[in-house]
């Protein structure tokens, strides 16, 4: 293999296309990481079952569509409520009792993830399942030299809307004031009439619901396997850790990581791009372990 085979020279139009693909990758990582950002950023819970919440969202969509005939667009909010309800139960019966013990939470949620994978495998079998999409999402957008599947455009739009909705809830509603108060100081929040347990329930359920929506989107994008969640959990955690656990941080880190990955793979190839990207992340975290947007910065 010569250097020329390995290195693709720069050309404007394909390069711009790579940037747009990067945006699409970023939006996928962002929507996968959004629920995790909420749960980790506000509650400090490391939820190892996050990938399986995504998987549940995908299978909910599959069941609603194949057995009950739901249209795809209706499956998105439905997946939100189904997985949010599931998350609410998990918080009540398990996570609630482990708030003071982060390591135990990590192990317990990992256990939940194993149970979910095997449970879904028992019910639906190990073979892949598919979610159908409306025909208007099934073609590609063609504007000049830009070529992007409509489904990818749809994911960009939905992830943008989810971020806006989450921002609005956190910073523009009374519920958001309650959540942020508990985040800053649980004792003080309780001393002023806030039921912190209820806030945790709602927050966890919301984060789970967002993962459900991500699952519904990914189900349309790729085939469904019981262990499909493990394919998203690594990137989701990287986005959250590099971002610093804040909503705005996750937006930036997903954007940066998606674009960098796409640009690297344009010049070289996918495997090498991932290698470079992950190495850069390790180096970045060595020098800035608090992530892009840290607590101290938002305190300003």
């Amino acid at each position: 293999m010569s250097v020329h085979d390995f290195w693709t020279p720069f050309a404007l139009e394909p390069f711009l296309n790579a940037l747009i693909v990067g945006l699409s990758i970023a939006s996928i990582w962002l929507v996968a990481a959004l629920g995790l950002t909420i749960i980790y950023g506000t509650m400090g819970v490391i939820n190892m079952a996050h990938g399986e919440f995504i998987m549940l969202g995908a299978y909910s969509t599959y069941v609603l569509q194949s057995y009950l005939g739901f249209p795809f667009l209706l499956c998105l909010p439905a997946a939100f409520f189904i997985v949010a309800g599931f998350g609410w139960v998990i918080e009540k019966v398990l996570i609630r009792h482990l708030y003071q013990r982060p390591l135990d939470t990590l192990l317990a949620t990992w256990g939940v993830s194993l149970v979910l994978i095997q449970g879904v495998r028992l019910v639906f079998g190990g073979e892949p399942q598919y979610v159908g999409v409306p025909t208007w999402l099934d073609s590609a957008m063609q504007i000049g030299f830009i070529n992007l599947a409509w489904l990818r455009v749809f994911i960009i739009v939905v992830s943008g809307l989810m971020v806006l909705l989450t921002w609005w809830i956190l910073f523009r509603t009374v519920t958001g004031v309650r959540i942020r108060a508990v985040m800053q100081n649980k004792e003080m929040a309780a001393s002023f009439g806030i039921n912190a347990n209820q806030v945790y329930s709602i927050t966890f359920a919301y984060g789970a619901g967002v993962a459900g929506v991500a699952g519904a989107l990914f189900g349309a994008f790729k085939s469904l396997f019981p262990d499909m969640g493990s394919g998203y959990i690594v990137e989701a955690f990287l986005v959250v850790v590099v971002g610093g656990g804040q909503l705005i941080g996750s937006v930036f880190s997903a954007g940066l990581m998606g674009e960098m990955g796409s640009v690297f793979s344009y010049f070289t190839n996918d495997t090498f791009a991932r290698f470079v990207l992950f190495t850069l992340i390790v180096v970045f975290l060595r020098f800035r372990p608090q992530g892009l947007i840290s607590e101290a910065m938002t305190r300003r």
């Binding site: 004031v177 942020r180 108060a181 800053q184 003080m188 929040a189 002023f192 938002t298 305190r299």
Partner: peptide, 12 residues
């Protein structure tokens, strides 16, 4: 709560 404004603290 240092990250809150005066108004948000009273709102609490």
């Amino acid at each position: 709560l240092g990250k809150f404004t005066v108004r948000e603290n009273i709102q609490l």
